[in-house]
Write a protein that binds this DNA or RNA. Structure first.
Length: 249
DNA sequence: CCGAAGATTGCCT
DNA sequence: GGCAATCTTCGGG
């Protein structure tokens, strides 16, 4: 109970100087903190995924360094923040020495500090998007149930939203005690028997590699979803019909 | 320059 | 359980 959730000191950079699949399970139970202008939020990490850089077909760094993935090739312990699906941010922590790209994606967590602020950030997002249909139909907004504490940072994009992590934190040094974004050691070590592993979520390549790690039984762990390719937008009235008619269900 | 996919989420039926 | 929202990134022409 009392005091048990106080995080340890900021992790040393050497912690990240290993392969991502070794670092990943050790990040469970650690605490990511962000001090922003509107307040501080901290999250205890409950679910992560390892990405092995140029050697991993599922990694953004597969095939080499680009402007987007440059942080992963730099000094370990820095945040690789990327934007996806036109609306979501996700945060990784870089591993391996400079020159070698790899990272651990922080997928889910439990808010341990600043829950009201985290809830406000999540609610603001819900209210500001998806209201096109409301305007077009003239319908009034439906009263939205409060976001449960469990869902505040459940899933990589929601974790970023709760923490207020955006593009400006790309490259932030999470091992610097003076940084606004910091990663601290666990308040309590997670017993090895409580660490489970399985396939990574939502990737199309190397989906069989079991580099997702989570705390067994934790309610904030996001559900597993296999990769679902997005259907090509059918904009014209006439269909392309260039597939010869064969389709597999 | 243009096209296509994407380490997701939330609302729809 | 299906699918729309929304835009950056990167590779190919």
């Amino acid at each position: 109970m009392g005091g048990a959730l106080t995080p340890g000191p900021v992790l040393p950079r050497g912690f990240f100087g290993r392969a991502a699949q070794e670092v990943a399970p050790d990040l469970l139970g650690c605490v990511l903190s962000h001090d922003a202008a509107d307040g501080a939020v901290a999250v205890l990490i409950t679910e992560v995924e390892a990405y092995a850089g140029t050697a991993d077909p599922a990694s953004h760094a597969f095939g080499g360094r680009t402007a987007r993935t440059a942080v992963m090739f730099g000094e370990p312990g820095h945040a690789y923040v990327y934007f996806t699906y036109g609306m979501h941010f996700c945060v990784n922590l870089g591993c391996q020495p400079a020159g070698t790209a790899s990272a651990v994606l922080l997928r889910s967590g439990r808010v341990t500090e600043g829950a009201p602020l985290a809830a406000a950030r999540r609610a603001a997002r819900a209210a500001s998007s998806g209201d096109t249909a409301l305007r077009e139909t003239g319908a009034r907004p439906v009263a939205r149930a409060a976001i449960s504490e469990r869902d505040l940072a459940r899933g990589p994009a929601r974790l970023c939203r709760a923490l207020g992590i955006g593009r400006s934190l790309n490259g932030a040094d999470a091992c610097d005690p003076g940084s606004p974004l910091r990663i601290s050691g666990p308040a309590r070590a997670v017993p090895a028997a409580d660490v489970q592993r399985g396939p990574r979520v939502g990737i199309s390549r190397a989906a069989e590699v079991p580099w997702r790690f989570w705390i067994a039984g934790d309610p904030t762990v996001s559900p597993y979803r296999p990769h679902a390719p997005r259907r090509a937008a059918a904009k014209a009235v006439s269909a392309p019909a260039r597939d010869g008619g064969t389709m597999q269900p």
